[in-house]
Write a protein that binds this DNA or RNA. Structure first.
Length: 418
RNA sequence: GUGGCUAUAGCUCAGCAUGGCAGAGCACCAGAUUGUGGAUCUGGCUGUCGCGGGUUCAAAUCCCGCUAGCCACCCCA
């Protein structure tokens, strides 16, 4: 028989091992707690959507062209694995008439997203996001609220030491004129720009502002700023968002070079970073207002604002910052039979389990060395069973920390352990 | 998608330049010892050396291809 290769995980996806699970649980619980306190309802949408739903949002960006998991199902439908939550949530909002209820709808979603990207640490092809969306209101107060929810969540998972970067990118009334100004500024400099930026100049000039290339950086400080060219409504909105954040005691830094990749974004954009970091790939999350998306997807024009955060990175930082040694105990009680006491040990474990989590070490082996296992399991008590005692339905109960040791009848174990 | 680095035991890695018996620490298993305990000592197990091909008497080592991970870029909806 030829040997077959063992089948490994698909490129770019990963297993979340038991050691990491407590952080995921904690992050999710904190998200639900905070979201619910602000009146957000959970929504679950499918992982697969019509490819067109996703593609409408950003037709000619690289991201959608190259990084979308796209396939045909057996019925010939062109489908995609969702690369983000917003498009699906907005679809569901209209499709099920949430737009007919009280406005706005405050929604949150936790789940896996998929992008066919070249993998790196913290960048997986399947990754998990917490997503918040407030659909059906243009109020600046909601821009600030979403930021506050995001910040409170990160605080609750001990990542509250944040730098919140904030900017506005105008709307369909004032941005086109600004983009022309920006192009006019950069065109004479074109040959001095990086090759990437030369390409972006006509197609997506906003991205020149957040280029990381050393060639490009010197020119941007003299570039026109959107904040000097906002229409009256956008300027008022922008001022109000900042006032609301100020009065909420939320600190932020204005970053005139913070932009978002897609056209449907309007007005407020923001990103949250751990305070120490500077790299853009360290972002814990980001979001903004997207008053143009609903219309791009064929629904009535509807204002909305949202936030998304990668749970993979958040849980990674939670774990890195966790001073506690060792994991959660897997069980409180370890039953340790000495010799052939399988039936008896199972019965004693069943008794202990009425009050405490309990495991039995059924493996035969040197009795004395089994103490190590008690430590590894994190047990607080060990129940020692020897044949002579077992015959009388008694055992020795030892408390690991205090090293106390007493003879106990099986029936008294729950009382002692409680 | 582009460029670079890497892949050897469950984990962290040495060995590779200059081809010649597959190694260490940790972990695991067993034994001894410590008042039945985390320490110490002794012994042991664990390898398609990422995969495939080539060169060679001989390949973990050199060459080519592939796969995967990591770093930077790109992207970040």
């Amino acid at each position: 028989m030829p040997r077959t290769d063992p089948i490994k995980a698909v490129r770019g996806v990963r297993d979340i091992l038991p050691r990491e699970i407590p952080y995921w649980r904690e992050a999710e619980k904190a998200a639900r707690d905070v979201a619910q306190r602000f009146g957000y309802d959970e929504i679950v949408t499918p992982i697969i959507e019509h490819a067109e739903l996703i593609e409408r949002a950003g037709e000619d960006t690289d991201a959608f062209a190259k990084e979308l998991y796209k396939f045909e199902d057996r019925g010939g439908r062109k489908l995609a694995l969702r690369p983000e939550a917003t498009a699906g949530v907005v679809r569901a909002y209209f499709e099920h008439g949430l737009n007919q209820g009280p406005q706005p709808s405050r929604l949150y979603l936790i789940g896996p997203m998929f992008r066919y990207d070249r993998p790196q640490k913290g960048r997986y092809r399947q990754f998990f996001q917490l997503d918040l969306e407030v659909i059906g209101s243009a109020s600046a107060a909601l821009d600030a609220e979403v930021i506050e929810v995001a910040r409170n969540w990160l605080r609750q998972v001990r990542l509250g030491d944040l730098r919140i970067e904030l900017n506005t990118i105008g709307d369909s009334r004032c941005r086109p004129a600004y983009l022309e100004l920006l192009k006019d500024y950069y065109r004479p400099l074109k040959l001095k720009l990086s090759p990437d930026s030369q390409q972006r100049l006509e197609r997506n000039p906003l991205r020149l502002l957040d280029s990381k290339s050393e060639q490009d950086v010197p020119f941007r400080s003299n570039a026109p700023r959107i904040t000097d060219h906002l229409c009256a409504d956008c300027a008022a909105h922008w001022a109000l968002v900042r006032r609301l954040l100020d009065s909420a005691g939320i600190e932020y830094v204005l970053n005139p070079y913070l932009v978002r990749g897609l056209d449907y974004y309007t007005r407020t954009v923001f990103e949250l970073f751990p305070s120490g970091s500077s790299g853009q790939q360290d972002a814990l999350g980001g979001g903004g207002r997207y008053d143009g998306l609903a219309e791009a997807e064929g629904w009535p024009a509807t204002s909305a604002v949202g936030f998304a955060s990668g749970l993979d990175r958040v849980t990674e930082l939670m774990e890195a910052g966790d001073k506690r040694v060792g994991g959660q105990p897997a069980a409180d009680v370890l039953v340790l039979p000495d010799g052939d006491l399988v039936m008896e040990a199972a019965e004693v474990a069943r008794i202990c389990r009425t009050v405490r989590s309990t495991v039995v070490d059924y493996e035969s082996g040197k009795f004395t060395s089994k103490w190590r296992l008690a430590e590894k399991v994190g047990a607080r008590w060990v129940v020692l069973m020897r044949p002579a005692e077992a015959a009388k339905r008694t055992a020795r109960l030892r408390e690991v920390a205090s090293r106390t040791d007493m003879a106990v009848s099986w029936e008294d174990l729950p009382g002692k352990l409680a």
